[in-house]
Design a binder for these strands. Sequence first.
DNA 1: GCCGTTACGGTTGAT
DNA 2: AGATCAACCGTAACG
Length: 338
Amino acid sequence: MEPAFGEVNQLGGVFVNGRPLPNAIRLRIVELAQLGIRPCDISRQLRVSHGCVSKILARYNETGSILPGAIGGSKPRVTTPTVVKHIRTYKQRDPGIFAWEIRDRLLADGVCDKFNLPSVSSISRILRNKIGNLAQQSQYESGKQAPHPPPQPSLPYNHLYSYPASKVPNPPGMPTLPGHMAMHRIWPSSHSVTDILGIRSITEQQISDSPSFSSAKLEEWSAINRSNFPPASSSLVNGVDKAHLEPHEAKFTQTPSGLPTANSYVTAPSIPPYHPPTQVSPYMGYSATTSAYVTGPTWQPASGSALSPHSCDLAGSLAFKNIAASRDAIHPVAASVL
DNA sequence: GCCGTTACGGTTGAT
DNA sequence: AGATCAACCGTAACG
């Protein structure tokens, strides 16, 4: 059960323990950093702990994603039925084969890659528990199979559960995946928001129409949607639209691009007009445009690079990771669906 | 004062 | 259905 509204941190910002910050805040953090605002100032302005700002910026720099990681769930099992089947086949063909040899063969045959390759102990366990004496009893069966059954790398698991780039350490010598590569991580969810909302075809259309759309952003969108989100709620919390208060706001108002722009954030038809909350909240101060985000009447960037709420068109001037482009491309979809 | 790191208490979702 | 586990979260505090 979620709290009606979150706790208040030392900076006066509201957060929900255990839940990610709203994507709009995350986006804002990155935008401000792109403008040269120091993390400490971003922290103060958005009333988000500096550790969190640091973490979000670090992740963004590393992966190109502003979105939180996939929460909950379990890692995909590596000992999928197909893997077991191949192990069985190897064992049938060569009853004396060692587990490490099976492991090598799984890799060589493309059944597994280095990320979902079962450990030797796992293979041993499979041989012991799932295959047992099959090797001897069904030698003849191997005759029915092709000498080299084609590997099936497109297991359901493998297909759906690519490991998150941020979670899988690059092997030595392997460069960090660029953002567009990192985007291919879909694990752990195949339940993309576009799927959930039934707008996949629409968004794909939008994406294809937008050459600058970052595939990373699409991946992000699906990555955060492991949960089955409740229907959007327009309930008010302390006079603040809950959609603004709850971190899950992304689930309701974020565009399929994964970029909850301040625009779509507040102009989506389902979202009531913004009313200044009476309670201190990091979610307050979002006005109709990204650039018009204000956190309070008194704050000024200490760095001196004063943000003009009316002059800095972030969407137009910032090209970081194609966020601006993708938001523009997707917004109409969000508006029509949400 | 700034910032990277981490312990902590929390949520989430697959098993 | 509920427990467990392992992933994630942001805050607060430390160095």
